[in-house]
């Protein structure tokens, strides 16, 4: 699980172009959207594509992402339970 969390942090920083944030700045329980990392709606869509591309998870309803993308801990748990690759 720790490897997956690290991988998620690296992907988020790189794919969402978080220039001023490093992997070490992201705590496993940090809120990713809103006042946390400040991710926006386009970032949410980008994370949905990442779930599909990297883990074979297809979200049919973008609103599902709100709960799944709450924090690294929540994301990692959801991915480990639902991944197909």
């Amino acid at each position: 699980m720790d490897t997956l969390k690290q991988e998620l942090k690296e992907n988020i920083v790189e794919q969402l172009n978080l220039e001023d944030i490093s992997v070490d700045d992201i705590d496993d329980n940090d809120i990713l959207f809103g006042e946390g990392l400040g991710l926006d709606s386009i970032d949410a869509l980008e994370l949905i594509v990442m779930l599909d591309k990297n883990y074979g998870i297809k979200l049919t309803d973008p609103k599902e992402g709100r709960a799944i993308f709450e924090s690294i801990n929540v994301m990692a748990k959801y991915i480990s339970e639902n991944r197909t690759k």
Partner: peptide, 8 residues
């Protein structure tokens, strides 16, 4: 896998 962040 089109990127929403590119498409916009």
């Amino acid at each position: 896998f089109p990127s929403p962040a590119v498409f916009v």
